[in-house]
Amino acid sequence: MNQNPDHDELDEDSANRVTPEARPSQVASYRRHYPGTQPEYLHPLYVSSIERAPRQPLIKLPHTLTEVTGPAFAPTLVNPKTADLTRQNGREAIGERITVSGRVLDENGKPVCNTLVEVWQANACGRYMHKRDQHDAPLDPNFTGQGRVMTDSLGAYKFLTIKPGAYPWRNHYNAWRPAHIHFSLLGPAFVTRLVTQMYFPGDPLLPFDPIFNCTADDKARNRLISQFDWETVIPEHALAYKFDIILRGRDQTPFEVQG
């Protein structure tokens, strides 16, 4: 019941099950990142990276079965109510209601369907419901800041939330994080994993934030800024922002298959 049709077929058709020995020795690799479009690990302006970023060069890993596979998700994985962050036990959170929606595509433009999108964020005052967040701003008992949604057959997702507030952190003197929502996606393979942060257009803190600015490529960095979207505004209820997410796609170059 918790299995998708593809997996049911595999299970029933065990006579055709591919043994590890008979599997193709070459798998279709995923594209490598374009230079400059992903952050470097060591970014001294982001002070925490100094003691935590690896210092040895990374070793290039060919994509094997391990890297090109990933877990599927049961249709019952996510309760649809978790797409609405604006209420807890029937009580409404405080702040400006917004929808955040978009599509999850791969680098070849193909929708990434039925994949898990997890989000977390501060409340309207810039405070996280987390024991280690000691920022002197009020908690909202009706806002946990936690949401989950599955993409549909077109790769689309949507959730309703409260616009998060900016908050101070101690990276440097008078450091403030611009308002942001954290996104986490697994995608279809080990190598398609993505954790990112979505920002808001026109935020005056963006030029000063070392985390937003850690990526060298201007276009790649600016794609983390959502767009205000009249089309999806809910009249009398919530403003709307659009944020499309691109996961890594298969390399288009031909590959050898044997066996």
């Binding site: 479009t37 989950r148 794609r223």
Partner: peptide, 22 residues
């Protein structure tokens, strides 16, 4: 079509809020 994969950002210190479920 050729798109570029979205840029990573840190999970930050408060990821347990969103990533506790699994």
């Amino acid at each position: 079509m050729s798109l570029q994969a979205t840029t990573w950002q840190t999970v930050g210190p408060y990821f347990r809020i969103g990533l506790e479920y699994l």
